[in-house]
Protein backbone atom coordinates (compact mmCIF):
# COMPACT_ATOMS: atom_id res chain seq x y z
CA UNK A 1 0.00 0.00 0.00
CA UNK A 2 1.51 3.32 -1.03
CA UNK A 3 1.63 6.39 1.13
CA UNK A 4 -1.40 8.61 0.81
CA UNK A 5 -0.99 11.68 -1.32
CA UNK A 6 -0.48 14.71 0.96
CA UNK A 7 -3.51 16.95 0.85
CA UNK A 8 -1.74 19.90 2.41
CA UNK A 9 1.62 21.41 2.05
CA UNK A 10 4.05 22.76 4.48
CA UNK A 11 4.62 25.72 2.22
CA UNK A 12 1.45 27.75 2.17
CA UNK A 13 3.20 30.51 0.35
CA UNK A 14 3.80 28.26 -2.61
CA UNK A 15 0.15 27.11 -2.66
CA UNK A 16 -1.04 30.68 -2.62
CA UNK A 17 1.07 31.52 -5.62
CA UNK A 18 -0.10 28.37 -7.48
CA UNK A 19 -3.83 29.20 -7.14
CA UNK A 20 -4.43 32.85 -8.01
CA UNK A 21 -7.84 34.52 -7.45
CA UNK A 22 -10.52 33.63 -9.99
CA UNK A 23 -9.94 35.76 -13.08
CA UNK A 24 -12.59 38.24 -14.16
CA UNK A 25 -14.17 38.80 -10.76
CA UNK A 26 -14.51 42.45 -10.13
CA UNK A 27 -13.09 43.67 -6.86
CA UNK A 28 -16.12 45.95 -6.50
CA UNK A 29 -18.59 43.03 -6.51
CA UNK A 30 -18.96 41.81 -2.98
CA UNK A 31 -20.43 38.45 -2.04
CA UNK A 32 -23.69 40.18 -1.24
CA UNK A 33 -23.66 41.96 -4.58
CA UNK A 34 -23.06 38.67 -6.33
CA UNK A 35 -25.96 37.10 -4.47
CA UNK A 36 -28.22 39.98 -5.45
CA UNK A 37 -27.10 39.70 -9.07
CA UNK A 38 -27.99 36.01 -9.14
CA UNK A 39 -31.31 36.40 -7.38
CA UNK A 40 -32.55 39.54 -9.07
CA UNK A 41 -33.71 38.01 -12.40
CA UNK A 42 -35.94 35.53 -10.58
CA UNK A 43 -37.01 38.23 -8.15
CA UNK A 44 -37.90 40.63 -10.94
CA UNK A 45 -39.85 37.92 -12.71
CA UNK A 46 -41.73 37.16 -9.51
CA UNK A 47 -42.44 40.84 -8.96
CA UNK A 48 -43.62 41.33 -12.53
CA UNK A 49 -45.71 38.18 -12.83
CA UNK A 50 -47.10 37.79 -9.32
CA UNK A 51 -46.64 40.73 -6.99
CA UNK A 52 -47.39 43.54 -9.43
CA UNK A 53 -50.59 41.93 -10.83
CA UNK A 54 -51.77 41.26 -7.30
CA UNK A 55 -51.18 44.85 -6.24
CA UNK A 56 -52.69 46.08 -9.49
CA UNK A 57 -55.78 43.94 -8.92
CA UNK A 58 -55.96 45.29 -5.38
CA UNK A 59 -55.89 48.84 -6.73
CA UNK A 60 -58.50 48.09 -9.40
CA UNK A 61 -60.75 46.45 -6.83
CA UNK A 62 -61.39 49.88 -5.32
CA UNK A 63 -62.36 51.37 -8.69
CA UNK A 64 -65.06 51.05 -11.33
CA UNK A 65 -62.47 50.36 -14.03
CA UNK A 66 -63.46 48.39 -17.11
CA UNK A 67 -60.73 46.94 -19.29
CA UNK A 68 -62.65 47.40 -22.52
CA UNK A 69 -64.40 50.67 -21.86
CA UNK A 70 -61.08 52.29 -21.02
CA UNK A 71 -61.00 55.77 -19.59
CA UNK A 72 -59.79 56.66 -16.13
CA UNK A 73 -60.58 54.45 -13.15
CA UNK A 74 -62.82 56.19 -10.61
CA UNK A 75 -62.43 55.27 -6.97
CA UNK A 76 -65.53 53.65 -5.53
CA UNK A 77 -63.63 52.57 -2.41
CA UNK A 78 -65.39 49.59 -0.78
CA UNK A 79 -68.51 49.66 -2.98
CA UNK A 80 -67.36 46.66 -5.03
CA UNK A 81 -66.65 44.66 -1.88
CA UNK A 82 -69.98 45.61 -0.32
CA UNK A 83 -71.86 44.70 -3.48
CA UNK A 84 -70.15 41.31 -3.70
CA UNK A 85 -70.63 40.43 -0.07
CA UNK A 86 -74.31 41.35 -0.14
CA UNK A 87 -75.12 39.87 -3.54
CA UNK A 88 -77.59 36.97 -3.56
CA UNK A 89 -75.96 35.82 -6.81
CA UNK A 90 -72.61 35.50 -5.04
CA UNK A 91 -74.15 33.75 -2.04
CA UNK A 92 -75.66 31.16 -4.38
CA UNK A 93 -72.29 30.50 -6.04
CA UNK A 94 -70.59 30.36 -2.64
CA UNK A 95 -73.03 27.69 -1.50
CA UNK A 96 -72.50 25.69 -4.70
CA UNK A 97 -68.75 25.96 -4.25
CA UNK A 98 -68.98 24.91 -0.62
CA UNK A 99 -71.05 21.83 -1.44
CA UNK A 100 -68.66 20.97 -4.22
CA UNK A 101 -65.51 21.42 -2.11
CA UNK A 102 -66.84 19.45 0.84
CA UNK A 103 -68.26 16.68 -1.34
CA UNK A 104 -65.26 16.30 -3.62
CA UNK A 105 -62.55 16.58 -0.96
CA UNK A 106 -64.31 14.26 1.49
CA UNK A 107 -64.82 11.62 -1.17
CA UNK A 108 -61.27 11.94 -2.41
CA UNK A 109 -59.85 11.71 1.11
CA UNK A 110 -61.76 8.56 1.98
CA UNK A 111 -61.03 6.87 -1.34
CA UNK A 112 -57.43 8.10 -1.55
CA UNK A 113 -56.59 6.93 1.94
CA UNK A 114 -58.32 3.59 1.43
CA UNK A 115 -56.42 2.92 -1.78
CA UNK A 116 -53.13 3.99 -0.20
CA UNK A 117 -53.78 1.73 2.80
CA UNK A 118 -54.48 -1.23 0.54
CA UNK A 119 -51.44 -0.56 -1.62
CA UNK A 120 -49.19 -0.13 1.43
CA UNK A 121 -50.06 -3.65 2.57
CA UNK A 122 -48.88 -5.17 -0.67
CA UNK A 123 -45.28 -6.22 -1.07
CA UNK A 124 -45.38 -7.05 -4.79
CA UNK A 125 -46.39 -4.71 -7.61
CA UNK A 126 -46.72 -1.70 -5.36
CA UNK A 127 -44.78 0.58 -7.74
CA UNK A 128 -46.77 -0.47 -10.79
CA UNK A 129 -50.08 -0.06 -8.99
CA UNK A 130 -49.12 3.38 -7.71
CA UNK A 131 -48.06 4.49 -11.19
CA UNK A 132 -51.32 3.25 -12.71
CA UNK A 133 -53.38 5.04 -10.09
CA UNK A 134 -51.50 8.27 -10.77
CA UNK A 135 -52.38 8.41 -14.49
CA UNK A 136 -55.61 10.48 -14.14
CA UNK A 137 -53.74 13.13 -12.16
CA UNK A 138 -51.30 13.62 -15.01
CA UNK A 139 -54.01 14.49 -17.54
CA UNK A 140 -55.09 18.00 -18.39
CA UNK A 141 -58.37 19.03 -16.77
CA UNK A 142 -59.73 20.10 -20.14
CA UNK A 143 -59.02 16.65 -21.61
CA UNK A 144 -60.57 14.97 -18.58
CA UNK A 145 -63.62 17.23 -18.87
CA UNK A 146 -64.07 16.52 -22.55
CA UNK A 147 -63.92 12.76 -22.37
CA UNK A 148 -66.15 12.64 -19.31
CA UNK A 149 -68.59 14.87 -21.17
CA UNK A 150 -68.79 12.24 -23.88
CA UNK A 151 -69.01 9.41 -21.37
CA UNK A 152 -71.78 11.12 -19.41
CA UNK A 153 -73.83 12.12 -22.45
CA UNK A 154 -77.39 11.02 -21.80
CA UNK A 155 -78.00 9.82 -25.36
CA UNK A 156 -74.71 8.46 -26.63
CA UNK A 157 -72.54 8.14 -23.49
CA UNK A 158 -70.97 4.90 -22.34
CA UNK A 159 -72.19 5.31 -18.76
CA UNK A 160 -75.86 5.32 -19.75
CA UNK A 161 -75.17 2.53 -22.19
CA UNK A 162 -73.79 0.43 -19.34
CA UNK A 163 -76.74 1.33 -17.13
CA UNK A 164 -79.05 0.35 -19.97
CA UNK A 165 -77.42 -3.04 -20.33
CA UNK A 166 -78.03 -3.57 -16.61
CA UNK A 167 -81.67 -2.77 -17.14
CA UNK A 168 -81.47 0.62 -15.47
CA UNK A 169 -82.96 3.79 -16.92
CA UNK A 170 -81.19 6.73 -18.52
CA UNK A 171 -79.78 9.39 -16.25
CA UNK A 172 -79.42 12.99 -17.39
CA UNK A 173 -76.02 13.41 -15.78
CA UNK A 174 -75.17 16.90 -16.91
CA UNK A 175 -78.53 18.56 -17.41
CA UNK A 176 -80.34 18.04 -14.13
CA UNK A 177 -79.71 20.16 -11.08
CA UNK A 178 -78.69 17.40 -8.65
CA UNK A 179 -76.92 15.05 -11.02
CA UNK A 180 -74.88 17.83 -12.63
CA UNK A 181 -73.17 18.77 -9.37
CA UNK A 182 -72.71 15.12 -8.44
CA UNK A 183 -71.16 14.50 -11.87
CA UNK A 184 -68.69 17.31 -11.27
CA UNK A 185 -67.75 15.83 -7.89
CA UNK A 186 -67.33 12.35 -9.38
CA UNK A 187 -65.14 13.55 -12.25
CA UNK A 188 -62.97 15.64 -9.93
CA UNK A 189 -62.72 12.66 -7.58
CA UNK A 190 -61.67 10.39 -10.44
CA UNK A 191 -58.88 12.77 -11.33
CA UNK A 192 -57.61 13.87 -7.93
CA UNK A 193 -58.05 10.87 -5.62
CA UNK A 194 -54.55 9.73 -6.70
CA UNK A 195 -53.10 12.91 -5.23
CA UNK A 196 -54.48 12.12 -1.78
CA UNK A 197 -53.47 8.51 -2.26
CA UNK A 198 -49.88 9.51 -3.05
CA UNK A 199 -49.49 11.66 0.04
CA UNK A 200 -51.23 9.11 2.25
CA UNK A 201 -48.98 6.39 0.86
CA UNK A 202 -45.92 8.46 1.74
CA UNK A 203 -47.26 8.82 5.26
CA UNK A 204 -48.10 5.15 5.60
CA UNK A 205 -44.66 4.10 4.38
CA UNK A 206 -43.04 6.36 6.96
CA UNK A 207 -44.80 4.77 9.95
CA UNK A 208 -42.05 2.95 11.94
CA UNK A 209 -42.41 -0.82 11.67
CA UNK A 210 -41.43 -1.40 15.28
CA UNK A 211 -44.69 0.16 16.43
CA UNK A 212 -46.66 -2.48 14.59
CA UNK A 213 -44.31 -5.18 15.90
CA UNK A 214 -44.86 -3.98 19.46
CA UNK A 215 -48.60 -3.90 18.87
CA UNK A 216 -48.66 -7.43 17.49
CA UNK A 217 -46.65 -8.67 20.52
CA UNK A 218 -49.42 -7.13 22.61
CA UNK A 219 -51.91 -8.98 20.40
CA UNK A 220 -53.57 -5.74 19.31
CA UNK A 221 -56.33 -6.16 16.75
CA UNK A 222 -56.03 -4.82 13.19
CA UNK A 223 -58.60 -2.10 13.90
CA UNK A 224 -56.81 -1.11 17.13
CA UNK A 225 -53.49 -0.83 15.28
CA UNK A 226 -55.11 1.25 12.57
CA UNK A 227 -56.85 3.53 15.05
CA UNK A 228 -53.97 4.05 17.45
CA UNK A 229 -50.89 3.83 15.24
CA UNK A 230 -51.63 4.30 11.54
CA UNK A 231 -54.24 7.04 11.58
CA UNK A 232 -52.64 9.36 14.16
CA UNK A 233 -49.27 9.22 12.39
CA UNK A 234 -50.63 9.70 8.89
CA UNK A 235 -53.29 12.24 9.88
CA UNK A 236 -51.12 15.42 9.76
CA UNK A 237 -49.80 14.54 6.33
CA UNK A 238 -53.29 13.69 5.14
CA UNK A 239 -54.54 17.03 6.38
CA UNK A 240 -51.93 18.81 4.28
CA UNK A 241 -53.14 16.88 1.25
CA UNK A 242 -56.70 17.85 2.12
CA UNK A 243 -55.62 21.48 2.39
CA UNK A 244 -54.07 21.44 -1.07
CA UNK A 245 -57.09 19.74 -2.57
CA UNK A 246 -59.53 22.08 -0.84
CA UNK A 247 -57.69 25.12 -2.23
CA UNK A 248 -57.67 23.58 -5.70
CA UNK A 249 -61.34 22.62 -5.49
CA UNK A 250 -62.24 26.08 -4.22
CA UNK A 251 -60.96 27.65 -7.41
CA UNK A 252 -62.49 25.04 -9.74
CA UNK A 253 -63.12 26.42 -13.20
CA UNK A 254 -62.05 24.07 -16.02
CA UNK A 255 -64.36 21.16 -15.30
CA UNK A 256 -67.37 23.41 -14.85
CA UNK A 257 -66.59 25.24 -18.07
CA UNK A 258 -66.27 22.04 -20.09
CA UNK A 259 -68.83 19.75 -18.48
CA UNK A 260 -71.81 21.90 -17.56
CA UNK A 261 -71.00 25.50 -18.45
CA UNK A 262 -72.42 26.24 -15.04
CA UNK A 263 -75.79 24.71 -15.88
CA UNK A 264 -78.51 23.78 -15.74
CA UNK A 265 -79.22 27.45 -15.30
CA UNK A 266 -76.51 28.57 -12.88
CA UNK A 267 -76.80 25.59 -10.56
CA UNK A 268 -73.20 24.42 -11.01
CA UNK A 269 -71.62 27.84 -11.30
CA UNK A 270 -68.77 28.03 -8.83
CA UNK A 271 -67.23 31.24 -7.52
CA UNK A 272 -64.37 31.06 -10.02
CA UNK A 273 -66.76 30.57 -12.90
CA UNK A 274 -68.78 33.54 -11.72
CA UNK A 275 -65.67 35.71 -11.45
CA UNK A 276 -64.88 34.75 -15.04
CA UNK A 277 -68.32 35.88 -16.15
CA UNK A 278 -68.09 39.16 -14.27
CA UNK A 279 -64.62 39.76 -15.67
CA UNK A 280 -65.21 38.85 -19.29
CA UNK A 281 -68.89 39.13 -20.13
CA UNK A 282 -69.35 42.68 -19.04
CA UNK A 283 -65.66 43.46 -18.53
CA UNK A 284 -66.41 44.83 -15.07
CA UNK A 285 -62.76 44.70 -14.16
CA UNK A 286 -63.06 46.55 -10.86
CA UNK A 287 -65.76 44.23 -9.53
CA UNK A 288 -63.97 41.14 -10.82
CA UNK A 289 -60.75 42.27 -9.13
CA UNK A 290 -62.53 42.74 -5.82
CA UNK A 291 -64.17 39.34 -6.25
CA UNK A 292 -60.78 37.75 -6.92
CA UNK A 293 -59.18 39.49 -3.93
CA UNK A 294 -62.00 38.29 -1.68
CA UNK A 295 -61.49 34.73 -2.88
CA UNK A 296 -57.77 34.97 -2.14
CA UNK A 297 -58.57 36.34 1.32
CA UNK A 298 -60.94 33.47 2.04
CA UNK A 299 -58.28 30.96 1.06
CA UNK A 300 -55.63 32.72 3.16
CA UNK A 301 -57.83 32.92 6.25
CA UNK A 302 -58.97 29.30 5.99
CA UNK A 303 -55.40 28.16 5.36
CA UNK A 304 -54.17 30.02 8.43
CA UNK A 305 -56.84 28.44 10.62
CA UNK A 306 -56.01 25.08 9.16
CA UNK A 307 -52.28 25.47 9.67
CA UNK A 308 -52.83 26.50 13.27
CA UNK A 309 -54.84 23.36 13.78
CA UNK A 310 -52.04 21.36 12.21
CA UNK A 311 -49.44 22.95 14.49
CA UNK A 312 -51.59 22.27 17.49
CA UNK A 313 -51.90 18.69 16.39
CA UNK A 314 -48.13 18.45 16.10
CA UNK A 315 -47.61 19.95 19.55
CA UNK A 316 -50.14 17.55 21.10
Amino acid sequence: MSDPVPLTTDHPGQVASATPPAPGRSRRLSDRGLAVAFISPALLLLLAMSVFPLLWALYLSFTDYSATRGGPAHFVWFENYTAILTSAQVHLRALTTLIYVVGAVALQTVLGFAIAYLISRRTHGRGLLTTLFLVPMMLSQVVVGLFWKFMLDAQFGVINSMLGSLGLGQVEWLTRQRTALISLIVVDTWQWTPFIMLIALAGLTAVPKYLYEAASIDRASEWFRFRTITLPLVWPLLLIAVLFRAIEAFRLFDLVYILTSGGPGVSTETLSFHVYKVAFLGFNTGTASAYGILMVLVVIVLTQLYLRYLNKLKED
Binding site: F52, P53, W56, A57, L60, Y65, A67, T68, R69, G70, G71, P72, V275, A279, F280, T285, A288, S289, G292
Partner: peptide
Protein backbone atom coordinates in the same frame (compact mmCIF):
# COMPACT_ATOMS: atom_id res chain seq x y z
CA UNK B 1 -57.87 35.91 -13.49
CA UNK B 2 -54.33 36.01 -14.90
CA UNK B 3 -55.66 36.72 -18.40
CA UNK B 4 -57.81 39.50 -17.04
CA UNK B 5 -54.85 41.04 -15.26
CA UNK B 6 -52.68 40.90 -18.35
CA UNK B 7 -55.44 42.53 -20.36
CA UNK B 8 -56.08 45.24 -17.80
CA UNK B 9 -52.41 45.89 -17.25
CA UNK B 10 -51.77 46.23 -20.96
CA UNK B 11 -54.78 48.46 -21.32
CA UNK B 12 -53.64 50.63 -18.46
CA UNK B 13 -50.02 50.73 -19.56
CA UNK B 14 -50.84 51.02 -23.23
CA UNK B 15 -52.53 53.69 -25.23
CA UNK B 16 -55.34 54.30 -22.80
CA UNK B 17 -56.49 57.60 -24.12
CA UNK B 18 -59.96 57.34 -22.78
CA UNK B 19 -61.46 57.14 -26.25
CA UNK B 20 -65.01 55.84 -26.14
CA UNK B 21 -66.04 56.09 -29.76
Amino acid sequence: MAAMLVATTMAACGQDDGATS
